[in-house]
Design a protein around this nucleic acid. Structure first.
Length: 653
DNA sequence: ATTAGGG
DNA sequence: CCCTAAT
C-alpha cells in the first residue's frame, strides 16, 4: 500500500504519466486529477486512495528512484505487510512509469541485514533502559487508543503518558489490532520473491511477550516491526534517520523505517552482511571464507574489464554476487593502478600547507557587526509581483524557536490551489555568479531562483537532486544584509488556510504537522567576523548515510569524494563532497579508537547512536587497504594519556 | 573545481 | 561543520 507516487515533472507536452503501484484499488482515483500541468508534488497514496503530501524523506527516496536515468530495480517495503518491487522507468519522452516487475533486488539484503543487526542492538539498549526504569518507577498503565484521525482503521495510535510510562510493551490489544488488517488492503502484487528481506508484520499476540525478552525479533531475516512499541519505533526512527520524530502513528513509523531499511540501495553494489559481528562479503557462499580472505583476494583481484555497475545492478536475480565481484575488481584495479610505491609516496608526502590565516578581515571590521542577524530575515517581504502563475507565501515557522521562512508556490491545480514548497535546498556550494548582483533586489532574486528551480525540475524530474548554489554565503557579505529566504524542500508546511482542497484529498490537519517538526534543520548561527552570522547547520549523519559513505569509499576509494558523492549521495542535497570527506575522517578516527567502552559512559552521554561495530570494522579494513594512517593520538595532543585514549571512543554518528 | 587539512 | 591552501 501507500506506494509513493512521484510526479515531478514539467510536462511541456502535457505528457505525464504516473502509475501508482498499489495493492489496493486506488489507482483510478488519483493520478489523473493531479496530473495537471503546473506542478507535481510528491504524494503518498494512502491505502484508501487518499493523497497525502509526502515527507521530505519520501521525497528524497523518490528522488533516489529517479536518480538514475535508466530503469533500476528497487525494493520497497511498505509499512506493514509486503514487499513490492518497483522499477521505474523514464522513457525519453519523459514519462514516468512504475511497474512491478518480476525481478528482484538481492543486492539490498546485505545492507538490510547490516542495518537490522544494528537496529537490533539499538533496540536492546532501549529495552534495557526501559527495564531499568521500570524497576525504579511505579508502573503507570499506558493507554491504548484508537486514533480516529488516522487515515484508516488500520492505524493504531498508542499514547503514553507524557511522563514516560515505562511500559512500552503494548498489550495484546495493540498488536492484535495492529495487524489483523493484512487483508484489508486487498491483494497485492507482491514481489516474486517475497521471501527475501521481507519486512513483515505477522505478529501474533502471543509473540508480544516473547518480545519482552528479545525486544526485537527477527525471524529468518524478517523484522517484526509490529512488535515494537511506539517508543521503540521512535528509537528506531531516530537511529535510522538521525532525528527524532513525534509521530505517534505506528503505522507510519513502521513504514518509514521499513522503507529506509529496504530502500537504501544506493550502495547495493558493495554489499556486506554481518555475521557474528563480522563483516562478510555478500558472496560468501561462493568463497566460503571469512572476511579476511575476501579482503585479501580483493587486493589481488585481477584487472578485469570494467562493467557498468549501474547496469549490472539489480535486474538479474543473482546480480548481487556479480556486483560484488565487479566492485571488488574495480578496487583491485585501483590499487594496482596506483601502484604500491606510488601510493606510499603519495601518502607519505602529505600536503603541507601554510598555516591558515583565518578571518583576516576580522581585524578591520569591528563596528559593522550586527548583533542580531536574524532580523535580516524579516527583510524578505514584498514579493515581486508579476509572477504569473505562482505567488509566494511566506510561512513562519512553528512557535518552537527559530523563525523559519518558507517560500511556497501556490499553483493552481485543476481549479484548486495547492501549495508547494519551492524546492531545492539552499546549501553552500558554489555560488552562482549572477547571484551577487541580485542580492540587493530580493524579490527578483527570488523570482529568479524560483524560475531556475522550475527549470531544474523540468529537466531532471526531481527537485533536490540538484545542488543549489548557496546564496547565503554571498548574501552575508552583501551590504544590504538580505538573507535570501531559505526555501528548503525539507518539509512542507501546509498552512491550514492556504492548503485548500486538493482533489480528493482531505488533508486532515493532524496529518500535516508531525513532519514539519520532524525534520527540523539544525541551523545554528555562529558569529562570524564579517558582520554577520554564518549558518552552521548540523545534520546528524544517519546510519544509512554512513553506510553509503563507507561503501562509497570501498567502491571509489577514499579521496574521490566527488565521485562518491555523485554515486551514493546524489539524492541528498546536503552532504557535499567535503562533508563526506570530513565524515570519513571522523569514521576513521572512530574506528581506530575502537572501544570496549561499555557500560559506563556508553549510552548515556551521547545522544547520538554509536556506529555499529561492523561498520567501523569495515572502515578500518578499508583504511588499511588504502594504507590510510589512522589518525594517531600519539601524534596529536596527549601523549601520556594512552590508556584512556584507547578505550574512550566508540564511533558516533 | 576538487581535495587535503586545520580549526 | 566551516574555512582556506593547494592542486
Amino acid at each position: 500500500m501507500e506506494t509513493v507516487v512521484a510526479i515531478e515533472h514539467n510536462d511541456d507536452d502535457g505528457k505525464l504519466e504516473d502509475i501508482g503501484v498499489d495493492r489496493s484499488s486506488f489507482s483510478l482515483s488519483s493520478p489523473k486529477q493531479i496530473a495537471n500541468p503546473v506542478v507535481y508534488k510528491l504524494v503518498r497514496v494512502e491505502g484508501d486512495g487518499r493523497l497525502v503530501p509526502a515527507t521530505d524523506d519520501e521525497v528524497m527516496e523518490m528522488e533516489d528512484f529517479l536518480e538514475h536515468e535508466n530503469s533500476e530495480m528497487r525494493v520497497v517495503a511498505d509499512t506493514g505487510q509486503s514487499l513490492e518491487c518497483i522499477s521505474i522507468e523514464r522513457s525519453s519522452s519523459g514519462k514516468l512509469r512504475l511497474e512491478c516487475p518480476k525481478g528482484t533486488a538481492d543486492a539490498d539484503f546485505g545492507k538490510l541485514n547490516a542495518k537490522l543487526q544494528y537496529i537490533e542492538q539499538m533496540l536492546q539498549k532501549v529495552k534495557q533502559e526501559e527495564r531499568l526504569r521500570l524497576s525504579c518507577e511505579s508502573p503507570v498503565p499506558s493507554r491504548v487508543k484508537k486514533d480516529s484521525q488516522c487515515s484508516d482503521d488500520k492505524a493504531v495510535t498508542v499514547e503514553n503518558n507524557q511522563s514516560d510510562a515505562p511500559h512500552q510493551e503494548i498489550p495484546s490489544l495493540a498488536s492484535s489490532l495492529n495487524y489483523t488488517h493484512s487483508n484489508q488492503s486487498g491483494s497485492v502484487d507482491q514481489c516474486s520473491r517475497p521471501s527475501e528481506g521481507v519486512i513483515e508484520s505477522g505478529s501474533s499476540a502471543s509473540a508480544v511477550y516473547s518480545a519482552l525478552k528479545s525486544n526485537f525479533s527477527m525471524f529468518d531475516g524478517e523484522i517484526c516491526l509490529d512488535k515494537l512499541s511506539i517508543r521503540e519505533l521512535h528509537e528506531l526512527f531516530k537511529v535510522t534517520f538521525g532525528r527524532e520524530t513525534t509521530v505517534k502513528d505506528k503505522q507510519w513509523l513502521k513504514r518509514r523505517i521499513a522503507m529506509s531499511l529496504t530502500n537504501s540501495r544506493d550502495v547495493s553494489a558493495t554489499t556486506f552482511i554481518i555475521k557474528d559481528n563480522k563483516i562478510v562479503r555478500k558472496c560468501e557462499d561462493s568463497s566460503g571464507n571469512g572476511d579476511a580472505e575476501d579482503v585479501i583476494s580483493m587486493e589481488n583481484a585481477p584487472v578485469e574489464a570494467d562493467v557498468n555497475l549501474k547496469d549490472s545492478s539489480a535486474l538479474e536475480g543473482c546480480g548481487t554476487e556479480d556486483n560484488q565481484v565487479v566492485s571488488e575488481t574495480k578496487m583491485g584495479k585501483h590499487n594496482i593502478e596506483h601502484g604500491l610505491g606510488g601510493e606510499d609516496h603519495q601518502k607519505a608526502a602529505k600536503r603541507i600547507r601554510k598555516p591558515t590565516k583565518r578571518y583576516i578581515e576580522e581585524l578591520s571590521e569591528n563596528e559593522s557587526r550586527e548583533p542580531n542577524p536574524m532580523a535580516s530575515l524579516s527583510s524578505s517581504r514584498n514579493m515581486g509581483p508579476g509572477l504569473s502563475t505562482t505567488s509566494y507565501v511566506r510561512l513562519s515557522g512553528d512557535a518552537s524557536s527559530e523563525v523559519r521562512t518558507f517560500i511556497t508556490r501556490v499553483d493552481s491545480l485543476g481549479g484548486s490551489d495547492v501549495q508547494v514548497p519551492c524546492v531545492s535546498r539552499v546549501r553552500r556550494s558554489h555560488p552562482r555568479k549572477d547571484i551577487t548582483s541580485l542580492t540587493k533586489f530580493l524579490p527578483i532574486d527570488i523570482a529568479k531562483t524560483a524560475k531556475s528551480d522550475n527549470k531544474v525540475l523540468a529537466e531532471t524530474g526531481s527537485c533536490a537532486a540538484s545542488e543549489n548554489p548557496d546564496k547565503i554565503l554571498k548574501a552575508r557579505s552583501a551590504p544590504g544584509k538580505l538573507q535570501p529566504p531559505s526555501c528548503e524542500p525539507e518539509k512542507e508546511k501546509q498552512l491550514p488556510g492556504v492548503s485548500t482542497s486538493e482533489p480528493q484529498q482531505e488533508l486532515r490537519p493532524k496529518r500535516v504537522d508531525p513532519f514539519s517538526h520532524t525534520s527540523e534543520d539544525n541551523i545554528v548561527t555562529v558569529p562570524t567576523a564579517k558582520g554577520g552570522m554564518r549558518r552552521k547547520h548540523h545534520r546528524a549523519w544517519t546510519l544509512v548515510e554512513v553506510m553509503k559513505l563507507v561503501d562509497g569509499v570501498s567502491r571509489c576509494g577514499a579521496g574521490r569524494w566527488s565521485e562518491i558523492k555523485r554515486l551514493s549521495f546524489s539524492s541528498h542535497s546536503y552532504r557535499t563532497s567535503v562533508d563526506l570527506k570530513d565524515k570519513w575522517r571522523n569514521l576513521l578516527k572512530a574506528s581506530f579508537a575502537q572501544a570496549p567502552a561499555d557500560e559506563g559512559m556508553n549510552v548515556r552521554k551521547h545522544g547520538t547512536a554509536p556506529i555499529p561495530e561492523p561498520i567501523l570494522l569495515r572502515v578500518r579494513e578499508l583504511a588499511q587497504m588504502n594504507s590510510q594512517a589512522p589518525p594517531n593520538f600519539s601524534s596529536s595532543k596527549f601523549l601520556a594519556g594512552a590508556g584512556n585514549a584507547l578505550g574512550d571512543r566508540p564511533g558516533y554518528l
